[in-house]
């Protein structure tokens, strides 16, 4: 599948934003600290930025409002509805913190749950497609949710340290979530490597009863929408190297930084801020690579007609 930058940015940014908003919703950060107020604003900005970038690939974005109508059958529509609904409790939480320095448990918890549901809907857009074997698994929503949670906890660790009154549990929770996220990704990759796609060139043409099917001539000399949109597939050797880069930058390094910052018995506040800040940037970069691979490694069933 073609790794469209707008969709990769959308899922990464909004995942981080929803993760941070959910952690804020549990009230683990001092609501009166300036850093927490900044965190609320950043969470909303990440979510809004992600949603705006997701409309960039539309052919007719002026009709995007129609996408709220088909929530009964479409995960994309459900995602749109949930994204808008989630802004209500998140907005209330942000206003309560920014203006009056207070934490409101009810909108907080509701917002956290809504964040999870929205990320779940995003993941189900991909997981529900039988035509893309790599995505069509429950590990897709599991890893999307865990990556959002891990990113949110790392960002929350940073803002908690920045606020001066660092919550001692946040870095530990972040390390656990990072581990769980990459464990789920390991299962996702293992399944992709161990299972055969649902369809083959033989079943796609119905000619398997004669023998082995090979594309002899494509329908046209040049590519088309289908080959551009679904023909992209990263070379196996590069995929292996990129997986290593993603795991190290998005998993191993930030987990080490957070663990050292937390275990060294409260190093200087500035050091903890710097370390968790770098960890957050590394998680962002690693998740971008992971999300790029999510598309680039996925093979669409239509490619059975195009000989690749």
């Amino acid at each position: 599948m073609h790794p469209a930058p707008s969709i990769i940015l959308f899922t990464t940014l909004s995942g981080l934003g929803y993760g941070l908003a959910a952690v804020l919703g549990f009230g683990l950060l001092d609501p009166s600290a300036t850093a927490t107020k900044l965190a609320h604003v950043l969470a909303l900005a990440l979510i809004a930025g992600g949603l705006i970038s997701s409309t960039l690939h539309l052919g007719n974005p002026q009709r995007a409002w129609r996408a709220f109508s088909q929530w009964r059958s479409s995960w994309l529509s459900r995602e749109g509805v949930m994204a808008v609904l989630t802004f209500v409790p998140l907005g209330i939480n942000a206003i309560a913190s920014v203006w009056s320095g207070r934490y409101l448990p009810l909108p907080g918890m509701l917002g956290a749950v809504f964040c999870g549901v929205t990320v779940f809907c995003t993941a189900m857009i991909y997981a529900s497609l039988k035509s893309v074997h790599a995505w069509n698994t429950e590990w897709t929503p599991v890893s999307y949710l865990l990556f959002a949670l891990a990113g949110g906890l790392v960002l929350a660790s940073f803002f908690s340290a920045l606020g001066g009154n660092a919550h001692p549990m946040l870095p530990f929770l972040a390390v656990i979530a990072i581990g769980a996220a990459w464990l789920s990704k390991a299962y996702w990759w293992a399944r992709l490597g161990a299972t055969a796609a649902l369809s083959t060139s033989e079943s796609a043409t119905g000619l398997g009863f004669i023998g082995k099917v090979r594309l002899f001539e494509p329908p046209h000399m040049n590519g088309n929408y289908l080959t551009r949109e679904m023909g992209f597939r990263v070379a196996r050797k590069h995929a292996a190297r990129l997986r290593q880069i993603a795991v190290i930058s998005g998993g191993v390094l930030p987990a080490l930084l957070l663990a050292v910052a937390a275990l060294s018995g409260g190093p200087s506040a500035a050091l903890a801020v710097a370390m968790s800040g770098v960890a957050a940037l590394l998680v962002f970069g690693g998740t971008l690579v992971e999300r790029w691979l999510f598309f680039a490694e996925a093979r669409h069933a239509v490619m059975n007609y195009y000989g690749s």
């Binding site: 599948m1 052919g59 007719n60 035509s131 929408y225 679904m230 239509v302 007609y305």
Partner: peptide
């Protein structure tokens, strides 16, 4: 009503749908 999101073309295993790049 079509916004040109392309998800239906992803859902079709047969490649029966193509986005018109001029009309979106």
């Amino acid at each position: 009503k079509c916004i040109g999101c392309g998800l239906c073309a992803w859902a079709c295993p047969y490649g029966a749908r193509e986005m018109d790049l001029a009309a979106g």
